[in-house]
Protein backbone atom coordinates (compact mmCIF):
# COMPACT_ATOMS: atom_id res chain seq x y z
CA UNK A 1 0.00 0.00 0.00
CA UNK A 2 2.84 2.37 0.83
CA UNK A 3 4.41 1.73 -2.58
CA UNK A 4 1.12 2.40 -4.40
CA UNK A 5 0.59 5.62 -2.41
CA UNK A 6 4.10 6.81 -3.19
CA UNK A 7 3.68 6.15 -6.91
CA UNK A 8 0.28 7.82 -7.12
CA UNK A 9 1.42 10.90 -5.19
CA UNK A 10 3.97 11.78 -7.89
CA UNK A 11 3.20 14.86 -9.97
CA UNK A 12 3.15 12.82 -13.14
CA UNK A 13 0.40 10.57 -11.77
CA UNK A 14 -1.94 13.47 -11.04
CA UNK A 15 -3.23 13.83 -14.61
CA UNK A 16 -4.08 10.14 -15.22
CA UNK A 17 -5.64 9.84 -11.74
CA UNK A 18 -7.89 12.87 -12.29
CA UNK A 19 -8.79 11.62 -15.79
CA UNK A 20 -9.54 8.14 -14.39
CA UNK A 21 -11.91 9.50 -11.73
CA UNK A 22 -13.57 11.83 -14.23
CA UNK A 23 -14.08 9.04 -16.80
CA UNK A 24 -15.52 6.69 -14.16
CA UNK A 25 -18.04 9.34 -13.06
CA UNK A 26 -18.89 10.23 -16.67
CA UNK A 27 -19.44 6.58 -17.61
CA UNK A 28 -21.93 6.09 -14.78
CA UNK A 29 -23.61 9.46 -15.36
CA UNK A 30 -23.97 8.95 -19.13
CA UNK A 31 -25.29 5.43 -18.55
CA UNK A 32 -27.95 6.68 -16.14
CA UNK A 33 -28.86 9.70 -18.29
CA UNK A 34 -29.29 7.84 -21.59
CA UNK A 35 -30.51 4.46 -20.33
CA UNK A 36 -33.59 3.60 -22.36
CA UNK A 37 -33.41 6.92 -24.25
CA UNK A 38 -34.31 6.00 -27.84
CA UNK A 39 -33.01 8.12 -30.69
CA UNK A 40 -35.63 9.64 -32.99
CA UNK A 41 -35.01 11.84 -36.05
CA UNK A 42 -36.88 14.56 -34.15
CA UNK A 43 -34.23 14.70 -31.41
CA UNK A 44 -33.08 18.34 -30.99
CA UNK A 45 -29.65 19.01 -32.49
CA UNK A 46 -29.20 22.77 -32.16
CA UNK A 47 -26.68 24.50 -29.91
CA UNK A 48 -25.88 28.20 -30.14
CA UNK A 49 -23.04 29.51 -32.32
CA UNK A 50 -21.48 31.16 -29.27
CA UNK A 51 -21.33 27.83 -27.45
CA UNK A 52 -19.81 26.12 -30.50
CA UNK A 53 -17.07 28.78 -30.71
CA UNK A 54 -16.37 28.44 -26.99
CA UNK A 55 -16.29 24.65 -27.32
CA UNK A 56 -13.74 24.83 -30.15
CA UNK A 57 -11.52 27.16 -28.08
CA UNK A 58 -11.81 24.89 -25.02
CA UNK A 59 -10.87 21.72 -26.94
CA UNK A 60 -7.89 23.36 -28.67
CA UNK A 61 -6.80 24.83 -25.31
CA UNK A 62 -7.04 21.38 -23.68
CA UNK A 63 -4.83 19.94 -26.45
CA UNK A 64 -2.08 22.48 -25.67
CA UNK A 65 -2.53 22.03 -21.90
CA UNK A 66 -2.05 18.30 -22.46
CA UNK A 67 1.25 19.13 -24.16
CA UNK A 68 2.38 20.99 -21.03
CA UNK A 69 1.32 18.12 -18.75
CA UNK A 70 3.37 15.72 -20.88
CA UNK A 71 6.48 17.61 -19.80
CA UNK A 72 6.12 16.68 -16.14
CA UNK A 73 9.18 14.72 -14.90
CA UNK A 74 8.69 10.99 -15.12
CA UNK A 75 10.80 7.93 -14.47
CA UNK A 76 12.05 6.47 -17.74
CA UNK A 77 11.76 2.68 -17.73
CA UNK A 78 13.97 2.32 -20.79
CA UNK A 79 13.26 1.52 -24.39
CA UNK A 80 11.03 -1.52 -24.65
CA UNK A 81 10.59 -3.35 -27.95
CA UNK A 82 7.46 -5.19 -26.82
CA UNK A 83 5.81 -1.92 -25.82
CA UNK A 84 6.80 -0.31 -29.12
CA UNK A 85 5.34 -3.22 -31.07
CA UNK A 86 2.22 -2.99 -28.91
CA UNK A 87 1.93 0.71 -29.72
CA UNK A 88 2.32 0.00 -33.44
CA UNK A 89 -0.33 -2.73 -33.26
CA UNK A 90 -2.67 -0.62 -31.13
CA UNK A 91 -2.42 2.36 -33.48
CA UNK A 92 -3.06 0.12 -36.48
CA UNK A 93 -6.17 -1.38 -34.85
CA UNK A 94 -7.33 2.07 -33.77
CA UNK A 95 -6.92 3.42 -37.33
CA UNK A 96 -8.84 0.40 -38.63
CA UNK A 97 -11.68 1.06 -36.18
CA UNK A 98 -11.86 4.73 -37.20
CA UNK A 99 -11.99 3.60 -40.85
CA UNK A 100 -14.88 1.21 -40.09
CA UNK A 101 -16.71 4.03 -38.32
CA UNK A 102 -16.17 6.31 -41.35
CA UNK A 103 -17.53 3.53 -43.56
CA UNK A 104 -20.63 3.22 -41.35
CA UNK A 105 -21.05 7.00 -41.34
CA UNK A 106 -20.91 7.15 -45.15
CA UNK A 107 -23.49 4.36 -45.49
CA UNK A 108 -25.74 5.96 -42.88
CA UNK A 109 -25.60 9.37 -44.53
CA UNK A 110 -26.55 7.74 -47.83
CA UNK A 111 -29.45 5.84 -46.18
CA UNK A 112 -30.62 7.96 -43.21
CA UNK A 113 -33.99 6.16 -43.09
CA UNK A 114 -32.31 2.81 -42.39
CA UNK A 115 -29.26 3.74 -40.29
CA UNK A 116 -28.88 6.73 -37.96
CA UNK A 117 -25.59 8.56 -38.74
CA UNK A 118 -23.17 8.77 -35.80
CA UNK A 119 -23.14 12.54 -36.19
CA UNK A 120 -26.93 12.58 -35.64
CA UNK A 121 -26.49 10.57 -32.43
CA UNK A 122 -23.68 12.86 -31.27
CA UNK A 123 -25.66 16.02 -32.06
CA UNK A 124 -28.66 14.55 -30.20
CA UNK A 125 -26.52 13.72 -27.14
CA UNK A 126 -24.82 17.13 -27.31
CA UNK A 127 -28.14 18.98 -27.51
CA UNK A 128 -29.36 17.07 -24.42
CA UNK A 129 -26.16 17.22 -22.33
CA UNK A 130 -23.87 19.67 -24.07
CA UNK A 131 -21.62 20.44 -21.09
CA UNK A 132 -20.91 16.77 -20.33
CA UNK A 133 -20.25 16.06 -23.99
CA UNK A 134 -17.84 18.96 -24.22
CA UNK A 135 -15.99 17.74 -21.12
CA UNK A 136 -15.44 14.33 -22.75
CA UNK A 137 -14.00 15.97 -25.88
CA UNK A 138 -11.84 18.29 -23.72
CA UNK A 139 -10.37 15.32 -21.81
CA UNK A 140 -9.81 13.45 -25.09
CA UNK A 141 -7.90 16.43 -26.50
CA UNK A 142 -5.92 16.69 -23.24
CA UNK A 143 -4.81 13.06 -23.55
CA UNK A 144 -3.89 13.50 -27.24
CA UNK A 145 -1.79 16.59 -26.46
CA UNK A 146 -0.14 14.86 -23.51
CA UNK A 147 0.87 11.89 -25.65
CA UNK A 148 1.97 13.78 -28.75
CA UNK A 149 4.17 16.26 -26.84
CA UNK A 150 5.81 13.83 -24.46
CA UNK A 151 9.29 15.27 -24.94
CA UNK A 152 12.31 12.96 -24.43
CA UNK A 153 14.25 15.71 -22.65
CA UNK A 154 11.71 15.83 -19.84
CA UNK A 155 12.10 12.19 -18.91
CA UNK A 156 15.42 12.55 -17.05
CA UNK A 157 17.02 9.62 -18.84
Amino acid sequence: MKYIREQLLRAYAAAPMVILLFAALMTVAAGIRFWGYAYTPGCPVLTSDGWITGAAAAVVGAFFLGGLLGKLPHRHPGQNEVAEFGAQLGLTIFTGLVTVVWWYETRALANPDQLPPITSLTLCIKANERDWTLLVFIVGALIAGRWLWHRPGTLFR
Binding site: I19, L20, M26, F34, G36, Y37, Y39, V136, G140
Partner: peptide, 18 residues
Protein backbone atom coordinates in the same frame (compact mmCIF):
# COMPACT_ATOMS: atom_id res chain seq x y z
CA UNK B 1 -29.42 1.52 -27.91
CA UNK B 2 -27.03 3.15 -30.39
CA UNK B 3 -27.49 6.44 -28.54
CA UNK B 4 -26.46 4.87 -25.22
CA UNK B 5 -23.47 3.16 -26.86
CA UNK B 6 -22.22 6.47 -28.27
CA UNK B 7 -22.92 8.37 -25.03
CA UNK B 8 -21.11 5.81 -22.84
CA UNK B 9 -18.49 4.81 -25.45
CA UNK B 10 -16.42 8.00 -25.16
CA UNK B 11 -16.05 7.94 -21.35
CA UNK B 12 -15.41 4.18 -21.39
CA UNK B 13 -12.58 4.59 -23.91
CA UNK B 14 -11.04 7.35 -21.77
CA UNK B 15 -11.52 5.21 -18.64
CA UNK B 16 -9.70 2.27 -20.25
CA UNK B 17 -6.81 4.51 -21.34
CA UNK B 18 -6.53 6.10 -17.87
Amino acid sequence: TGLLAVAVGGPVLILAVA
